[in-house]
Design a protein around this nucleic acid. Structure first.
Length: 757
DNA sequence: AACAACGGGCTTTTT
DNA sequence: GCCCGTTGTT
């Protein structure tokens, strides 16, 4: 029982108390993941069948990491049988299983945010509403929060308060948009993200046999990040755990930072009312940070009224004081912080990966990118467009979706004229009108033009027919051809690959490469199944592709780089040196959060999260003026700086008193502002899958390398390998043997190989 | 139907 | 300042 001895008393209790409801309040850095994994391992070691365990996490990454750690303790074959994943992925699978009960096809499409928004936009247009009043984003938010509170379109319409509220805000017909949106999704055989939870609730509510089955299947329910669950998730968990009441929720109310998307902090605050028989375990010892950081964070969070009392403490050393750095401009802030990183790196022999720059908004990354680049410090940026949201990827996926589910209207609209095949706006609008007149799908209209006369001319009908025939030809292969072969067929025969190949602009090259990357991802997936003597079909790949995110493909190459990310994205991570930048009023706390106490408290929790990411040293930084929306805006230091007990702080940077030095600086500043800054507007478009340009590492990209057979090289995904063959002169293609992945053919232009010897 | 010019908008983000 | 979507032009 060696895993128990590595736990402190509070952790051990939380692991050992397996029966009945329990809540683990886990302070930042207190070993929460460790408790969760050991708890699950402990259950299984004590005879609980992994099939009877349900463990729900906030992200795919968290689920994967936990699964790996459990596998290390109890073995992979057992760990495999635990139902573990995000709410969305676990219940999407369950829904596919019972989709017929809800009138959905089992291969229903999952609409992502873009799909929902585009559908809402179309509906607003169709109802002839003004899209300045009925802003798709706003409507989507309204519908989403309705669904998260289990309010269907019918219930929405019948709710006089809600309808009155919409009328007051000048949107009396919002309920119609919701009604039509619900109907269209259903007709398209599509569920949006919120539906995955909403329909699970419906399934469990209306089908007692199903409820009974899962209540008995999931005898043990564990929920991570409970403070970030919404009502819909809360209710699913409550229903499932109702019979055995072996529910364990883990969270930290102080780290609840997602209320803007429906997370309900009350869920954790009310746990004790829901389960009177509960036990509470508080993990209060922090193993991550210095005393300075822990105490500073405590002094901040205690300003919040709404919280569960706890005392986070640590045995670690005092550590350095928290530096507060003042700069005159955002550019200067970038330089100062980058220089500081450079300095610490040399002084402490730290690795690039030991540093993180955290900010409130993605737009702040620019000045840091620029200055890090000048110092040749490699960095990686999280955020921005994820791989699966890129246009070219979504286009190809839309073909896959349409192949699996021709009712999927968003997919159809996306690719009916991409690549260009002469089916323009007029044609598409005509099809939409006819489809809506006959209460049928666009697909039905174009597959059976004799039944649904569109009045389109013969040439157009021929083109439509060719399109329908192509999709049908893919569809018949769905269950015959493996995922990779079919995917490649579609990519080629749809013309997507060629269209991108013909586009020789840097963006086009990058898109082509992204498509190749998606295809090799599918290849990996297919071969993974082959290794288990199974055939993977495209629909298997599509099952949760909509639920995948970028964090799933962290590459080897990215490990030793300075990290730039929003504070939100940093939740759950830790770094020796953390720089929290843009500590200014109206930026952090955000201007939009100043209206209510609860919003301000959420900002404060966000600051708490940021501070507690740091292990050795935290640094705060603010600028007295910065570019915002094209203007120079002057700013005040954030109130959060004042909320830290002063004895933990150490001020640095341009002094506040007037001095000749300052005016010099201001002159410099004005010159900087006046001169044209290098523009990185193309950066996101240009950079392929790996997110940011490599910094100054002497390793160059493979295309200008003098590669020879026999060289040892490093690949960002496959790791170390040896060159066994080269093609072209100078070489354009290499065959490389990777111990981890076998022989791979790589295009040097894209592969970003690094020579090791 | 393709491309340039214009204007509005704009936290955070996973699923 | 920059992105995105819409409008206007040929």
């Amino acid at each position: 029982m060696d895993y128990l001895s590595s736990l402190n008393p509070a952790q051990r209790e939380a692991v050992l108390h397996t029966e009945g409801p329990s809540m683990v309040i886990a302070g930042a850095g207190s070993g929460k993941t460790r408790v969760l994994t050991y708890r699950i391992a402990h259950l299984i070691k004590n005879g609980v069948d992994p099939f009877n365990i349900l463990a729900l996490t906030f992200t795919n990454k968290a689920a994967r990491e936990m699964k790996e750690r459990i596998a290390e303790i109890i073995g992979a074959s057992e760990a495999k049988n635990i139902s573990m994943g995000t709410f969305h992925s676990v219940f999407a699978r369950i829904l596919r299983h019972h989709s017929d009960k809800l009138g959905y096809p089992s291969n229903f499409t999952i609409y992502d945010t873009q799909d929902s928004r585009s559908l809402i936009k179309a509906i607003v247009k169709e109802l002839r509403l003004d899209d300045k009043t009925y802003k798709p984003n706003l409507i989507a938010g309204r519908i989403s929060s309705a669904k998260n509170n289990l309010i269907s379109a019918a219930a929405y319409e019948a709710n006089t308060d809600i309808v009155a509220e919409d009328r007051m805000s000048g949107k009396p017909r919002l309920f119609e948009v919701y009604r039509l949106y619900e109907k269209r999704c259903f007709m398209a055989g599509a569920m949006d993200f919120d539906d995955l939870l909403f329909k699970t609730n419906v399934l469990l509510r209306d089908h007692p046999d199903v409820l009974h089955y899962y209540q008995h299947k999931f005898r043990y329910v564990l929920v991570d990040e409970y403070q970030d669950t919404n009502y819909s998730q809360y209710l699913i968990v409550k229903k499932l755990a109702d019979v055995f009441q072996n529910i364990c929720v883990v969270g930290d109310d102080a780290q609840s930072i997602y209320s803007f998307r429906g997370a309900n902090i009350e869920n954790i605050l009310n746990f004790k009312n829901d389960y009177p028989e509960h036990r509470i375990f508080k993990l209060e010892q922090n193993y991550r940070s210095t005393k300075t950081i822990v105490n500073a964070a405590n002094s901040v969070i205690e300003k919040n009224k709404n919280q569960i009392k706890k005392t986070v403490w640590t045995d670690n050393t005092d550590g350095k004081k928290i530096k507060v750095i003042r700069s005159l401009t955002d550019n200067e802030e970038g330089k100062t912080i980058s220089n500081l990183i450079y300095e610490i790196k040399n002084l402490e022999q730290a690795a690039n990966g030991d540093f993180a720059i955290l900010y409130r908004t993605n737009a702040q990354s620019r000045s840091f990118e620029e200055s890090l680049r000048k110092l040749n410090l490699p960095y990686k940026i999280y955020g921005g467009l994820s791989f699966y949201q890129r246009k070219e990827i979504k286009d190809l996926l839309a073909y896959f979706r349409l192949t699996a589910n021709p009712s999927d209207e968003e997919a159809l609209k996306r690719v009916i004229n991409y690549p260009k095949r002469g089916l323009g706006k007029t044609t598409i609008e005509r099809i939409i009108v006819v489809a809506s007149q006959h209460e049928t799908s666009m697909w039905n209209v174009i597959s059976d033009p004799s039944k649904y006369p569109t009045g389109l001319n013969g040439g157009t009908l021929n083109k439509l027919n060719a399109f329908v025939t192509a999709i049908n030809s893919y569809a018949v292969q769905l269950e015959k051809t493996d995922a990779y072969v079919l995917a490649e067929t579609i990519a080629k025969s749809s013309g997507i690959l060629k269209a991108l190949y013909d586009d020789k602009s840097p963006e086009g090259v990058s898109r082509h490469e992204n498509i190749q990357a998606l295809l090799s991802g599918i290849k990996e997936f297919t071969e993974g199944a082959k290794a288990d003597n199974e055939t993977a079909f495209l629909s298997d790949f599509m099952v949760d592709v909509a639920l995948l995110t970028d964090a799933d493909q962290e590459s080897e190459e990215d490990k030793d780089k300075v990290t730039l990310m929003t504070i939100h994205a940093s939740k759950g991570l830790e770094f020796p040196y953390v720089f929290i930048v843009g500590m200014e009023e109206n930026l952090f706390p955000s201007q939009l959060a100043l209206n209510s106490r609860s919003e301000l408290e959420e900002e404060r929790r966000l600051f708490y999260v940021a501070l507690t990411r740091a292990e050795k040293q935290a640094t705060l930084s603010y600028a007295t003026s910065r570019f915002r929306w094209g203007n120079i805006v002057t700013s005040e230091p954030s109130r959060f700086i004042d909320e830290i007990d002063a004895d933990h702080l150490e001020f640095q940077g341009a002094s506040k008193s007037k001095s000749p030095g300052k005016s010099m600086n201001q002159l410099n500043m004005e010159r900087k502002i006046g001169s044209k800054q290098p523009l990185y507007s193309n950066r996101r478009k240009l950079t392929p899958v790996s997110k940011a340009p490599t910094g100054g590492k002497k390793g160059t990209t493979a295309q200008d390398l003098d590669l020879k057979v026999g060289y040892n090289v490093m690949h960002e995904r496959f790791g170390k390998g040896k060159v066994v063959g080269l093609e072209g002169n100078p070489p354009t293609k290499a065959t490389v043997f990777f111990p981890k992945a076998g022989n791979k053919q790589l295009l040097l232009k894209f592969a970003r190989l690094e020579i090791l010897d």
